[in-house]
């Protein structure tokens, strides 16, 4: 393996990317109903419908009655660009491919990792419980080398996050204890979420990709109770009193 690669010789390079993507979760297989609802939405927020790429999630549907091709046509006529399908049977997968769409496995069987990290998540101890809204509650100490994530919603840690540990969530990260490791909120790009902790001593704080290292944190805020959020593209750390 050579380290010196002639850049001009390669036509392209593959890179891992993480892009925000709208998932259209279908509750009805009926293209007419989808079309009617889309028409309503279009009049409310026309800015959204600018050939926006969407992933059609068919997980909630009984797919024997699904007309994927017609659904795609309905989407396109409302300036939504279906790029992939999530979930469904082998038949759905085949027809997605036939329509030139990608296919993703259903949510539950997918690895809950969008932000690639150096260590694979350690198998979870039986202290985990599912929170109500697709989020996750972890009770206990998150130890060095462990990674705890919530692919949807918020992550609540009732305990300490030790140095060398990593906690991540699509939504906000709440730590009821000292935060000494890394915390990443909004890993799918949600800019409204934040990080909340009882005792700040984090190695890294990140909200929607904007991050601060321990070195960048105002020393007067260390070991205090804070919230971390985005303000004008800047990560702001504020005391919570």
């Amino acid at each position: 393996m050579s380290l010196k690669v002639d850049q001009t010789a390669t036509a392209f390079t593959f890179k891992g990317g993480m892009l925000p993507m709208t998932v259209m979760e279908l509750n009805s297989p009926d293209p007419e109903r989808v079309s009617a609802q889309l028409a309503g939405k279009l009049s409310q927020s026309p800015a959204f419908f600018q050939h926006t790429p969407v992933v059609l999630s068919v997980e909630k549907l009984d797919d024997t009655s699904l007309a994927l091709e017609r659904l795609c046509a309905v989407c396109r006529s409302h300036k939504l660009l279906p790029v992939a399908v999530r979930g469904g049977s082998e038949g759905i997968k085949q027809s997605a491919w036939a329509l030139g769409l990608g296919w993703f496995p259903p949510q539950e069987s997918r690895e809950a990792r969008t932000l690639a990290s150096v260590t694979p998540p350690a198998p979870q101890a039986p202290v985990l419980a599912e929170a109500g809204s697709g989020g996750r509650i972890f009770r206990g100490t998150v130890r060095s080398g462990q990674q705890i994530s919530a692919a949807e919603g918020d992550l609540v840690v009732v305990g300490a996050v030790n140095a060398g540990a990593e906690v991540l969530a699509a939504g906000s990260v709440h730590v009821y204890g000292p935060l000494r490791g890394r915390a990443l909120a909004g890993i799918h790009g949600d800019r409204e979420c934040g990080i909340f902790c009882h005792e700040l001593h984090a190695e890294l704080l990140s909200v929607a990709g904007n991050y601060k290292r321990l070195e960048d944190i105002d020393p007067s805020l260390l070991n205090t109770t804070v919230q971390v959020r985005l303000r004008d593209d800047q990560l702001s750390i504020e005391a919570l009193v």
């Binding site: 350690a122 198998p123 979870q124 101890a125 100490t141 130890r143 060095s144 080398g145 462990q146 030790n162 140095a163 060398g164 540990a165």
Partner: peptide, 17 residues
Amino acid sequence: RDSDRILGLLASKTRRA
């Protein structure tokens, strides 16, 4: 820190876990 790491493994990489 290394002990902390080992404690993580004890909670996941043992027969009991």
